[in-house]
Structure formats: structure tokens, C-alpha cells
């Protein structure tokens, strides 16, 4: 049976250290997977936006559906302030969405398994493709970006004075809570994303261990696709809500 130690090992920092000009830079698995996600997204966006025409055909339809979905989402929550925020939220939902569901592209056997089969040590370095958001640091980085967006949006659209004034509205008694909100919001955003993805990942690992065939394919639809997509949507949605509150 898979014991706690093995499970902890799966959750902990794994990766490589590189030395550049005397600097010691650790590269974790989540960073490598994020590079893969970025590469996929960049290549897809270049392919999908080539040869744009007035009357859309084929792949341009897909691109327009995605852009329209993002535009409608931001318009719904931010009203007429939506324009400068739409690109950020589009990027966020695409990146988080692909990051969360990327474990369905996992190679089985994993890099280590291939190395054991073939005896080539090169394959050992291929990381297991796990969602990078199961790393606490990645989720925290996204949450901090979100809260900075809220901060800057509030200052930009209300002016410094209006922004400061928003802390003591409607009554000054709420001031400590309003300040505290800037710390509790990123924390709850981080924990929600990280906790959900880590839980789904852990359950899928246990299922892969217990029943390696047939059963994981059905459970994967729920835990990887549905849960991952939903969490990405909720993260974007809550950020939109916070920004909407800040600019109003």
C-alpha cells in the first residue's frame, strides 16, 4: 500500500538545480510543467490567430468563441470598465484551465518507468506531468497577482483620494476589516485553488495505485477535467468580483 512517506514525496519539491554565473537556481517540476503549458498556449494562439478574415472560417470560429466568452464574462461583472481587464482575465482563465487539467496528458509509464524499462538514464529527468497549481507557491503567486490587480484597479479608477476614502465607507468602524481583506482574500484564493487541485491529484494518485486500468479513466473526467475547469473558473470569477468591487 502507498504509505504516507511516499505520498509526501509526491507532494514535495522535486526538481533540478542549475548554476549560472555562481547563482544557484532551483528549478522545480511545477516550473517545467508551467513552461510546457506556456509553450502549448503560445503555439495554439499563433496557429489560431493566423490569417484572420472578416468572415470567420474553421479555426477562427473557435478563437472568436473563446474571446467572446471572456469579453462577456468581464462585461458581466465589471460593467463599462471591462476593456482594460479582459486580456488579463482571458490569459488567467486559459492558463489556469490548462494547468489544472494538464494531468490528463500524463505519460504512462512516467519518465522513471521508461528509464527502468529501457535503461536510458536520460528519461529519468522527464518530470511527471502534474498540475503546477498543486504547488502551494504557484497558487500563491496567482493569488498575489490578483490582489495587486485589485489594488491597482482601485487606485487607477477611483484616484488615490477615492481609494483611501473607500476604506472608511460606509462607516469608519469597518476600517480594520477592509485592511484585513487585502490579506485574507489572497489567502483564501490560494488555499481554495491549491487545496482542491492537491486533493484531486492525491485521490487520482491513490486510484492509479489501487486500480491502474479502466476505473481511472472515468474518475479522471470528474477529478481532472471537471474539477480543474471549475476551480479555474471560480478563481477567475472571484478575482473579477473583487476587481468589480474595487472599481465601482
Amino acid at each position: 500500500m502507498m504509505n504516507g512517506e511516499e505520498l509526501m514525496h509526491k507532494m514535495q519539491f522535486k526538481g533540478y538545480d542549475i548554476n549560472v554565473l555562481g547563482f544557484h537556481i532551483p528549478i522545480s517540476d511545477s516550473i517545467i510543467v508551467m513552461w510546457i503549458v506556456m509553450a502549448i498556449l503560445i503555439v495554439l494562439s499563433i496557429i489560431f490567430t493566423r490569417n484572420l478574415r472578416m468572415v470567420p472560417t474553421g479555426k477562427q470560429n473557435v478563437a472568436e468563441i473563446i474571446v467572446e466568452f471572456v469579453n462577456n464574462l468581464t462585461k458581466g461583472s465589471l460593467g463599462h470598465y471591462w476593456k482594460p481587464f479582459a486580456p488579463y482575465f482571458g490569459t488567467l482563465i486559459l492558463f489556469l484551465g490548462l494547468s489544472n487539467i494538464i494531468s490528463i496528458f500524463n505519460i504512462i509509464p512516467s519518465g522513471k518507468g521508461i528509464a527502468e524499462l529501457t535503461g536510458l538514464s536520460f528519461f529519468e529527468h522527464i518530470p511527471e506531468i502534474a498540475p503546477p497549481t498543486k504547488d502551494f507557491n504557484v497558487s500563491a503567486a496567482f493569488a498575489v497577482m490578483s490582489i495587486f490587480l485589485v489594488l491597482f484597479a482601485g487606485i487607477k479608477f477611483k484616484g488615490i483620494k477615492g481609494w483611501l476614502k473607500s476604506f472608511i465607507e460606509p462607516i469608519p468602524v469597518l476600517l480594520p476589516f477592509k485592511i484585513l481583506e487585502y490579506f485574507t482574500r489572497p489567502m483564501s484564493l490560494t488555499l481554495r485553488l491549491f487545496g482542491n487541485i492537491l486533493a484531486a491529484f492525491t485521490i487520482m494518485e491513490l486510484v492509479y495505485f489501487a486500480v491502474p486500468i479502466v476505473v481511472p479513466s472515468f474518475l479522471s473526467i470528474y477529478f481532472d477535467l471537471f474539477d480543474g475547469g471549475l476551480q479555474a473558473y471560480i478563481f477567475v470569477f472571484l478575482t473579477l468580483l473583487y476587481v468589480g468591487e474595487a472599481v465601482e
Binding site: 504516507g4 505520498l7 509526501m8 507532494m11 458581466g76 461583472s77 483564501s188 488555499l191 481554495r192 487545496g195 482542491n196 492537491l198 486533493a199 471560480i234 470569477f237 472571484l238 468580483l241
Partner: peptide
């Protein structure tokens, strides 16, 4: 909109429980 907000907040308690379980683990 309202439901999703409420769900996310309700779910947070479960996530905190999970986090504490992991820390104990």
C-alpha cells in the same frame, strides 16, 4: 453569480480542514 460566490465560501471550510489534515499528516 451569487450561488458561485456562496459555494466558494462554503467550500473554504472543507479546504481548511484538508489543509490541517495535511499539516498533521
Amino acid at each position: 453569480t451569487l450561488t458561485l460566490t456562496g459555494l466558494a465560501l462554503a467550500e473554504a471550510t472543507a479546504i481548511y480542514g484538508l489543509l490541517i489534515a495535511i499539516l498533521l499528516f
